[in-house]
């Protein structure tokens, strides 16, 4: 998708360098947990001619970042920016064209699924739309227990424990996803993600589909869980204001590159890149309007 008219293009000099994440210094204390180096991903469009291969789409053009243990890391970008590709590569759901992703020092990029069990246990994902990410034919009990079963671990009382942790009654276990509201379904998705006691929780736009009153409940829950369980949080959103509320560090993705990264307050107060400034100016805020 072309960038919208009027959006300043990424500054190629600053952007293409693939500068490491700690650009603005002063990162949190924990040791590096996820390290991404010079990651690229090229997709091919379907071919339209017999003699020529399909057009190449450079979804990621050399991205580097570091997520430290215990950090709350926000990734902000619009549709087509490459943030979903980046997320898929972080979670080893796709293979990069070049570059590396390491998790706790172990290379993840390009590994076959059977070698990724450690990652599947340590890193779990909550998706945007809890209606399509939860199997409508499974009871909540089985949905929440499924990651444990897949890893061959005993389930025991874990389901009740997890439902309690996300603020759902134990009776929820016997019901089906459609019997819950959007916010409750997102709680189920979070309980499921927490089942194997992951170190990292990746949340891909977890509140975008929710009403504003429920959004607060889920953001509070994520913050509480991250504190209690010492989780590392990777939070993807199109909304810099939400990221600022929840995260310490932010990376702004635009056109396949990280155009700006650093402590979220610095980026918010003094955005260095024209794209970040455009993004900030575009977000309507109540305070700004009244």
């Amino acid at each position: 998708m072309p960038s919208p008219a009027g959006t300043p293009d990424a500054d190629p000099v600053r952007a293409s360098a693939g500068a490491p994440a700690a650009d603005r210094a002063g990162g949190p204390a924990g040791e590096p947990l996820i390290e991404v180096r010079d990651l690229t991903r090229v997709y091919r469009r379907p071919r339209t001619s017999l003699t020529r291969p399909g057009e190449a789409v450079h979804a990621l053009k050399g991205v580097s970042l570091t997520v430290h243990r215990g950090e709350r890391f926000g990734i902000v970008g619009e549709s087509g920016s490459g943030k979903s590709t980046l997320l898929r590569l972080l979670c080893a759901l796709d293979r990069p064209t070049s570059g590396s992703v390491t998790f706790a020092g172990r290379e993840v990029a390009g590994l076959p699924e059977r070698s990724l069990r450690f990652l599947r246990r340590s890193l779990q994902i909550v998706f945007q739309d809890p209606m399509s990410s939860l199997d409508p034919r499974m009871r909540v009990r089985d949905l929440v227990a499924e990651p444990l079963v897949a890893l061959g671990e005993p389930v025991g009382d874990r389901v009740a424990e997890l439902l309690d942790a996300v603020g759902l009654p134990a009776s929820a276990a016997e019901r089906y996803p459609h019997q819950f509201s959007g916010g409750q379904r997102q709680r189920i998705a979070i309980a499921r993600a927490l089942a194997p006691r992951p170190e990292v929780l990746v949340a891909d736009e977890p509140v975008s589909a929710l009403d504003v009153s429920v959004r607060g409940q889920i953001l509070n829950l994520l913050a509480d869980l991250a504190d209690e369980l010492g989780l590392t949080l990777v939070f993807v959103s199109h909304d810099l204001a939400v990221v600022r509320h929840l995260c310490e560090t932010v990376a702004v993705v635009h056109d396949g590159l990280i155009v700006e990264t650093g402590p979220v307050d610095d980026v918010w107060e003094a955005p260095g890149h024209p794209y970040t400034r455009a993004l900030l100016a575009a977000v309507p805020t109540l305070e700004g309007m009244l």
């Binding site: 009403d211 009153s213 607060g216 204001a241 600022r244």
Partner: peptide, 23 residues
């Protein structure tokens, strides 16, 4: 009042105002 409070995103580390329950 609840909707307006929930729409404001306070600084990190503070609780977001919410409306209990759901529609």
């Amino acid at each position: 009042e609840g909707l307006l409070a929930a729409s404001r995103l306070p600084p990190r580390g503070t609780r977001l105002a919410t409306i209990p329950g759901s529609v």
